[in-house]
Amino acid sequence: MLGKLLKNEWKSTYKIGGLMLIVLVGVTFLGWLAFQSPMWQQMSNDNYYYRSSFGVSLLNIVSVCTLLFYAVMLVAVSVGIIAYLGVRFYRTMYTDEGYLTHTLPVTEGRLLFAKTFISGIWMLIISLGIILSVFGLFAFMISAMLPAGYSLSDFWQEFWRVYETEMKDMFALIEEAFGMSFRGYFIYMVVSLILSAFTSVMTLFGAISMGQLFTKHRVLMAIVSYIAVSMVKGIFSSVIEGIVTNIYVNSRSDSPAIVGSYINTNMIIGLVLSVVFAALLYLTSWLVNTRRLNME
C-alpha cells in the first residue's frame, strides 16, 4: 500500500512541481538574456575605457529590471513550493478531501510518510533547481563580462590554475591552523540541503496538524502554531549557542584551532536541532492523525 500511496502522491503533485521547474528554466533563460546587454561587456576590466561612456539606455534598464524580476521569481518559486505543499497537505488531510484520505485502508503512519516523503522530494528538487539556476546565472554573468577572446572554459582553467598555485596551500594552512575542513563544510552543506528539504515539510505539516487540535479557527491556529514553533526553535538555538559560546570563551584557549572547533560545534548543533524539532513535529502529526483526528 505504501508504494501505491507514493505513486498517487507523486501523480497528484508532479504537474505543479513540474510547472515550477519550468518557471525556473524560464527565468534562468531570462537571466541569460539580461546578460546579453552590452552593458556587462562594457563593465569588464579589459574594457575599462568604455566604462566612462557607460550610460543609461533602455536596453540597460531592461537588463537590470530582468535581473530584478529573476530574483523576485526565485523567491516566489521557493515560497510557492512550500505554500503549495502546505495547502495540499491541509486540503487532502483536513478538508472534504480528507474524508476519502482517512477512509483509505492504510495506516495513518504510511499516509503521513508518503505525503512527507514526496513533498520532501519536491522541496529538494526545487532547491537543487534554484541552486543550479543561480550557478547558471553566475556563469552567464562571467561569460558576459569576460574580455573579448576569452571563453568561459578559459576562465575556469585560469581559476583552477590560480587556485592550484596560489590558493590551495593557503586554504590548507587555514584548515590546519584553525582546525577547519572545507571539504567537510561542503559535505555538511549537501547533507543540510537534503535534510532541510524534509525537515521544512515535517515542520510545516506538524504545525498544520497542531491547528487541528483546536475546535475553531483551525487554519489560523495552524499559522500561529508555525510561528510559535519557529520562535521556540529560535530561542532554543540561541540559548544553546550562548551556552556553547560561553564554554569556548571560558576555555581561554590560545590555540587558533578553537575557531574551527567553535564553528564546527555550532554547525552540528544547528543541524541536530533542526532534525530534532522536525522529528517532534512529525510525531505531533502522527499523534493528531492516530489519536485526535476530528474532521469538521
Binding site: 480528507g98 482517512h102 477512509t103 489519536r291 485526535r292 483526528l293 476530528n294 474532521m295
Partner: peptide, 9 residues
C-alpha cells in the same frame, strides 16, 4: 457515522 469511519475520535 464519522466515528464509525474513523474520521472522529
Amino acid at each position: 457515522i464519522k466515528m464509525m469511519n474513523g474520521l472522529l475520535t
